[in-house]
Computed example of a mutant assay.
Amino acid sequence: MSLLEVDQIRGGYGDVDILNGVEMRVEQGEIVAIIGPNGAGKSTVMKAVFGLVKVREGRITYREKEIANLRPDQIVRQGLCYVPQEKNVFPTLTVEENLEMGAFIRNDDFSKDLEKVYELFPALYEKRRQAAGALSGGQRQMVAMGRALMLDPGLILLDEPTAGLAPAIVDLIFENIKKVNGLGVSILMVEQNAKQALKMSHRGYVLTTGRNRHHDTGENLLNNREVAEMFLGG
């Protein structure tokens, strides 16, 4: 069984289905990218997995347990974290307080995990006493990923982790994602920088109008003429 399996899900907001039979999976240790045009349902898939969007049909399993329509707090306790595109830090709390919030369901000593986050993101150690709201966009993204790591998760969902960031910072965030994956954490991400995302991903999914359009390895999708012309700018 895959770590995460999304099987023919339909759902959306109110009475409108944004997802129309989406399928995808994430294996242990993988980076998997979801790309596609605006309105394709990419972020909606992530929210459906994390219990933020109602699933009307289909199944979502994580570590072979059904999680569709569980509350987000129940899903977090399964070892799955979600990092949204916006408002992903507590701006008035310090960097360290933000990271500690990631361990809110833990009853054990998480000091070693805090050290691990600081080793992974040295810039956060330097800023640990500063309010997270005063950080740059790239640094806030590091805080959000670091906070997710404090749970010691098996899978992190990243929704547009490089949105609005300068090109140099985009490269840094992708490097950080690879570092997180190097710790053994699987990654499922929605990303607007499709070429870069596919280059670093084991596999990728292309969605259009809430449906699967293509699924292949990241390399094969990069070399797919239709994908290149329609979704990668030629």
Rank of each mutant, 00 (worst) to 15 (best):
M1L: 09
M1R: 10
M1Y: 06
S2Y: 01
S2E: 12
D7T: 12
Q8L: 14
N20Y: 04
V26E: 04
E27Q: 10
Q28S: 14
A33C: 12
I34T: 07
I35N: 04
P37R: 07
N38V: 05
K42F: 08
S43Q: 04
T44K: 12
A48L: 07
L52F: 08
E57S: 15
T61V: 11
Q74A: 14
V76Y: 11
C81G: 03
P84M: 01
P84L: 01
E86N: 14
K87A: 15
N88C: 12
E97S: 10
I105H: 11
D108K: 08
D109W: 04
S111G: 08
E115G: 05
K116C: 09
V117H: 03
R128V: 10
A132W: 09
A132V: 08
G146Y: 05
D152F: 07
P153L: 10
G154E: 15
L157P: 00
L157F: 03
L157Q: 05
D159N: 00
A166H: 14
L172M: 13
I173G: 00
V180Q: 04
V180S: 00
V180F: 02
G184W: 05
I187P: 12
L188G: 08
Q192C: 00
Q192E: 04
L198N: 06
S201L: 02
R203W: 11
V206D: 11
T209C: 13
N212V: 13
T217V: 11
N220C: 08
L221A: 01
L222E: 04
M230N: 15
F231Q: 01
L232S: 02
G234I: 13
G234R: 14
